[in-house]
Amino acid sequence: MSEYQYYEFAAIDRPLTAAEMTQLRKVSTRGQISASGFVNHYEWGGLKADPAEWMRRYFDAFVYTANWCSCRLSLRLPLATYREADLRSFAAGAALTIDASDEHWIIDWSLDESENYERFDMEDGSGWMGRLAPLRDELLRGDLRPLYLGWLASAGQLNDDMLEPEPPAGLSDLTLSQQALAEFIEVDPDLLAAAAAGSPRAAAEDSTHAAAIEAWLTGWSREEMAAVLRLVALGQGREAERRIRTRHATWLKEQRPTTSASAPRRSLAQLRELARSASGVRRAREAQERAVKEAESRRQREASLRLLMADVDQRWATVDALAGRGSASGYAQAVHALTDLAEGYALTSSHKEFDRAMRRLLVRHATRGALLRRLTEAGLWSG
C-alpha cells in the first residue's frame, strides 16, 4: 500500500490575497487553492513546505492525517487572547504544543503512534476540518477544554505525580467539536471520564439572547461602530465581520466565570485510579447494552422463524425447486433456506422432525453430490 498524506489549511480571519495564492501555487501545482484555504493529498512524497511556517504566514487552522496512523491539528489565535500563564500548564507532553509568533499563538494537537490501524486505513482526512475548526471560536471565547483534552492525550508520557492543569468546567458535557477532538487525538475515554468526575457543568452561553447582545453592544463607542460600518461601505465586509466576531469572542471570554481556585487538582496517579473504576463502569454498561441488543435480535429472529414455520410446506417446496435447478447458485440458496428451516424446527418442533423432512427431500436429490457436499459442510446433513 502506498503512502497517503492529507493536508488542509483554512484562512478564517482574513482571505488570502492574490499574491499569497500565487505563492502557494508555486509550492503545489495541483492543490485546491482559494482565498479561504488550501487542500491537497499526496500518495508519493509530501508537501514541499513547512506547515508551521504556513500557519505563521497565511492560515488560522490546519488539519493533517497520514495513513501511518498519524494526525495533527493546528489553530492560530491572536496573541492577546491569552497570557502565557493561562496556557503553560496544559503543554506538558508531545500531544499538545503551544508556540508564539510576533502576533499569534500557534496551538498544536498531534497523535503520532495510533494503534487504530483500521481508522487510518479507511479515512482520507476530509471532513475533519469542518468538525474541528469550531474549536477556534471556543478558545477565543475562553473555553479551555480543548487544551485540557490535549493534556489528557499526553498522559501516557507523564509521571504519576504530575498534577493536572486547573480543570475547566464542563468536562462531562463536551461540545460536538470537543468530542471530535477527543476522537481525533484518541483521548482515553476512561481517563476522560475520570477527569470529568466532579467537574461542574459549563455555564450556558446565551450569546444570542437579545438582552445579552444589547449588553455587548453597549460597550461599543460611536467611533468603533463607525469604523466597522466604513469597512462594509468600502466592500470589506469580511474584515468587518472578523472584527465583530473577534470583539464578541473577547467579550464572551470576559463573561466566562473562572474555575474556582478551591477546585482540587488531582495527580495523574489519582486520575488513573479513577480511570480504572470508570473502565469497570463502562464495561458493565457496554455489556448491558450488548445484552439488550442481543435479546432484541433474538426476539426478532424468533418472530421471523415462527412466521416461516407457519407456512412450512411452502418453504420445503421452495427448497425442492432450488435444489432442482442443479446450479451452484440454486444450491447456495437452498442451503441458506434449509439453515432457516433447521432453526425454525428447533424453535417450534424438534430436530428429529427436521431430519425426517430432510430425508424426504433428499430422496429426490440423492444423486446431486455437490448439494450433499454443501449440506454436510453446513452441518445440515451427516449422511
Rank of each mutant, 00 (worst) to 15 (best):
I12G: 02
L16T: 06
S36C: 07
E43L: 11
W44Q: 15
W54V: 01
R56K: 15
R56H: 03
Y64P: 07
N67A: 06
C71Q: 02
R72G: 00
E84I: 10
D86M: 03
A91P: 07
A100T: 06
D108Y: 08
D112H: 14
E113G: 06
S114N: 06
E115F: 11
N116H: 14
D121R: 10
D124P: 11
D124T: 10
P134M: 04
R141K: 13
D143V: 04
R145P: 09
P146H: 11
L152G: 06
L152C: 08
A153M: 07
G156A: 10
Q157F: 05
D160I: 13
Q178E: 11
Q179W: 09
F184D: 07
I185K: 02
E186I: 08
P189E: 03
P189H: 05
A195C: 02
A204M: 12
D206N: 12
T208R: 07
E224F: 08
M225P: 03
M225R: 15
L229H: 11
L234N: 03
A240H: 06
A240Y: 08
T250W: 00
L252R: 06
R266Y: 10
R272M: 14
L274T: 02
A278Q: 13
S279E: 09
V292N: 03
E296T: 09
S297R: 13
R298A: 06
E302Q: 07
S304A: 13
M309T: 10
D313K: 09
A317Q: 15
V319T: 08
V335W: 05
V335R: 09
T339G: 14
L341Q: 12
G344R: 13
A346R: 14
S350G: 00
R359A: 04
L361P: 03
G369T: 13
L372H: 04
R373S: 12
T376M: 12
G379D: 11
